[in-house]
């Protein structure tokens, strides 16, 4: 059982390293490897299924979360984070997981995050739940897709323009909460898990 798993992980890491660097321009591939795409299809099917069953593809539940009246979204997200965090801790101990940390540029994370929130509050679906909402038959989510395609391309057209440079502050690199606090990974994981579980208990008691 263990050996095939191990060899597939190594083969995968090799293929990840073998992919040409972004700087290759025209040589950049048009498509990800078939194995990756097959796993993407399986992951997407599961993701959409779980989002819909969890209720977070529903317009009312998403707006309810932003109006601080319905806590379904908080429950789904906090559960996912707690389970995933503990899993990351364990799988890393076994050496079975590569981290994919997005570099922190605090100016961009904050400005982009707030802008995202404004759009989220206006559209009511976020990029993942919009896709799930379409599958569920919420026709307004299709209009949302059109907006998102335009907005993303607009970013590609403008990302290098000078006004955006003002957000290039607070470049910390690929830092984790462990780097920021100096705590060992188990302690940071336990601390975040405790905060999230406490928040969920508070929601259950107060709501």
């Amino acid at each position: 059982m263990k050996q095939p798993e191990q060899s597939s992980t190594t083969a995968h890491e090799q293929s990840a390293h073998a992919s040409p660097s972004p700087r290759d321009g025209a040589a950049a591939p048009w498509i990800d490897p078939p194995r990756t795409l097959l796993l993407a299809a399986i992951a997407g099917l599961s993701f959409g299924f779980l989002l819909q069953k969890g209720g977070v593809a529903k317009f009312d539940i998403l707006i309810g979360a932003l109006l601080l009246e319905d806590f379904t979204v908080a429950k789904v997200m906090a559960s996912a984070i707690v389970v995933g965090m503990i899993g990351v801790l364990l799988l890393r101990r076994l050496g079975r997981l590569n981290l994919h940390i997005k570099p922190a540029v605090l100016g961009r994370n904050i400005a982009g995050g707030l802008l995202f929130g404004v759009g989220f509050g206006t559209l009511a679906y976020c990029p993942g739940t919009d896709a799930a909402a379409i599958g569920q038959g919420n026709l307004d989510a299709i209009t949302g897709i059109v907006g998102m395609l335009c907005g993303s391309h607009l970013y590609a057209l403008t990302s290098h323009t000078p006004p955006l440079a003002i957000f290039d502050r607070g470049r910390l690199g690929k830092v984790r909460l462990t780097d920021a606090t100096g705590w060992p990974e188990w302690l940071a994981t336990a601390a975040v898990a405790a905060i999230l579980v406490a928040a969920l208990i508070a929601i259950e008691i107060l709501d």
């Binding site: 400005a111 982009g112 995050g113 707030l114 802008l115 995202f116 929130g117 404004v118 759009g119 989220f120 509050g121 206006t122 559209l123 009511a124 976020c126 990029p127 919009d130 209009t143 949302g144 897709i145 059109v146 907006g147 998102m148 395609l149 335009c150 907005g151 993303s152 607009l154 970013y155 590609a156 990302s159």
Partner: peptide, 10 residues
Amino acid sequence: GGIIMAYGAR
């Protein structure tokens, strides 16, 4: 909303 949200996400 879609335009603003996607721009913010990027």
